[in-house]
Design a protein around this nucleic acid. Structure first.
Lengths: 163, 163
DNA sequence: CTTGTCACTATGATTATCATAGTTACGATG
DNA sequence: CATCGTAACTATGATAATCATAGTGACAAG
């Protein structure tokens, strides 16, 4: 490609988000970070992306203050990547993407009887489905309010990628 | 690039969405469609994307049943692109992206005193800010419930691109 | 019969992406 | 103390997606 068109000069909020989020590698890495994977190799293995691409995107996310690089050990040097508040606030976007896919991107019965990824509202224990507000207690849902549980098929896939 | 990694074989719902949405051209085109731009040239002009890329992405979106190509006139042949139900259901994703950008992607005071794009709840008239449920009446918000109003700066930018 | 509009398609230069291999720093094993 | 293993990357070369620009086909208007 030639250099990608710069969208940071637009006033449109979707355009500004698209500058960062209109990239499959970024989305996959964010997904893994929300899932709790913090280490470079774990992210590279699960996403299937090459180390070069993971490296470039983590640097980008760091520059944008979406993740922080953190040394969790000095000898030998080991790092992990953590979502900042700005990064954690992207949960709504990923949650909306997941909801749309659950509703439209699977064949009938492909995921067994439930969603590919189930979310439980910690506060009341209700399965929230793909709702924006908890169907049990009516509270709006954000990162931290929910506990994700992958289906058996998704768990198996992740185990295969990690192995 | 070599062929982009295929994500359609994953069980992860974010991965499946990322296959389509992890692309800045797709996101910009969807934004314009939600904004009411249906014609090829209008989309190409406003997004700043080349006609070749717009053509390729509209074909992709059509294949994925996200948009429908519709002839609105036969002599000379003219077409427009409309969101399907599957496409309209992507509103939640774009709305979440817009909310995140409004909260994080602008300098202090850059947009004047309000958001770059204001949304009003049609049912009760409340300005919903970046909320998931209407702060006025508590109803969950979807496409059709909201009326978008670009700020003066955003309007000026769109006029400039169209001209 | 020239100009204009809409909806594209064609061409060529540039560069991001992928696959694979290599590097650095260390700790553990034999 | 030499080798092996692991984490976190960097280097290299082939491939293909993207951009900018130009061109096409169908018609309508002046």
């Amino acid at each position: 490609m030639p250099r990608r068109a710069d969208l940071s000069d637009t006033y449109c909020p979707v355009g500004r988000s698209a500058e960062l989020l209109g990239d499959r590698a970024v989305l996959l890495i964010l997904r893994d970070l929300f899932f709790g994977r913090r280490r470079f190799e774990a992210i590279a293995a699960n996403t299937g992306l090459g180390p070069q691409l993971v490296s470039a995107r983590l640097k980008l996310l760091e520059r944008e203050n979406v993740v922080e690089r953190h040394a969790y050990q000095h000898r030998p040097p080991r790092h992990e990547y953590r979502l900042t508040d700005k990064g954690k606030d992207l949960f709504g976007v990923l949650y909306a993407m997941r909801g749309w896919a659950e509703r439209w991107a699977y064949e009938e019965g492909e995921t067994g009887d439930g969603p590919a990824m189930r979310y439980i509202h910690r506060a009341c224990g209700a399965d929230v489905g793909t709702a924006l507000v908890c169907p049990g207690c009516g509270a709006p849902l954000g990162y931290g309010d929910l506990k994700g549980e992958p289906s058996a098929a998704l768990k198996a896939e992740q185990a295969r990628r990690a192995g």
